[in-house]
Design a protein around this nucleic acid. Sequence first.
DNA 1: CCATCTTTTGAGAGTTACTGTCATTTGATA
DNA 2: TATCAAATGACAGTAACTCTCAAAAGATGG
Lengths: 218, 218
Amino acid sequence: MSPEQPTAAPPNAPANPVQAMLEAPLSLRERKKLKTRQTIRREAYRLIAEQGYENTTVEQIAAAAEVSPSTFFRYFATKDDLVLTDEYDPVMITALLARPADEPFLTSCREALIGLIRELLQHEREELLTRMRLVTEVPSLRAGLHRGGNSPQELFLVALTRRAGVEEPTFDMRITAAAIGAATTETVLQWAAAEGEQDIATLVDHTFAVLESGFAGV
Amino acid sequence: MSPEQPTAAPPNAPANPVQAMLEAPLSLRERKKLKTRQTIRREAYRLIAEQGYENTTVEQIAAAAEVSPSTFFRYFATKDDLVLTDEYDPVMITALLARPADEPFLTSCREALIGLIRELLQHEREELLTRMRLVTEVPSLRAGLHRGGNSPQELFLVALTRRAGVEEPTFDMRITAAAIGAATTETVLQWAAAEGEQDIATLVDHTFAVLESGFAGV
DNA sequence: CCATCTTTTGAGAGTTACTGTCATTTGATA
DNA sequence: TATCAAATGACAGTAACTCTCAAAAGATGG
């Protein structure tokens, strides 16, 4: 019924996950869907840049993308999802699970994060900046960041649970994922707030140093 | 225009902040406002318990509380605020700032938290449990937890900034507040998920031990 | 007690995000 | 070319808000 998200890259996919997804052979139907999705997003970002997020209605976006409002909601469950969803969570989880299991989890996170972000910056730097700026500025988006499923917090929790090979996460895992996820989010937002002028790897390193130190500095 | 929140307890208020707020001399107008606010909340919780959160409309709540929908929104900016807002943030900040300035921030947080929670449990244990259960279950509430102003994250950030005596929080303060705030939230939710049967002081202690250790265990 | 000013309230109209249904179109398949 | 499944659009409906304005009720000074 609803259009599928692009599937996660398999473990043996090419090094660049973004390219990997784009290179996959697609049927006409799938190409059209992808195109529609991209058109909606593109037109949405254009209108939002012109008028602001709150002043841009779903109806306007749908009209600009030449689809009906119904169709808009078939591609994005909510207006917020335009900005909040991306397709990198599975990639990040894969990257996390690819790290040695006996490595401290903080180290795994730092390395996986830096790797993924570097990749993203090469291809979608501007879009990422725009998105993060919107998230910072629009309250409903800021809130939505922590909604079920696609928050960094959930992501780290899944990785931790799987790595431990258990079904249900423990309390320790929950608080760990929560803390690391929140700190990570804050770091990316900080980077966007500085217009991307600070080196994000340095910021991430710094964040994880603070986490590792047990917040000794404050 | 909009009804005022009960003001923060002054530094030299009685030990129990809840009582302190209730003991303040109130004009007839203020008493009515407080009563209206309490009635709305009480009727709302009653209806929500019967029908669930999503199935309970603002119109129903307003009718049950015998006010107009307009008035509902004068008392609660959003339906979510019924569950998400409380009046303890200023109390917590005061408690945090009352700790010695050279104490590690983590210690200050742990002690202030345990103190406040113990206080709350004596008077509003059931309501707190209900609220936290709702927050866990209803997605929009879970998201709203992190919205501007009344999240633990914001609260810790304000405390950190004031304690350092500066205007703008540093990057370190941001990630620290984010991590501690998220871990704290998770802890309280865990307590509620276990129906309040675990000792919350023990849970909090455990959480802060994990934070202090630099996540050495995972 | 009365007159006046201010705050609070209710009524009503309007906007917008979202849901659900159903008939039509369009790509896939044999 | 005929058939089936997926995608779309039109439409009606719901509910959370927002705004405006006039009426009601408490505060205040005489």
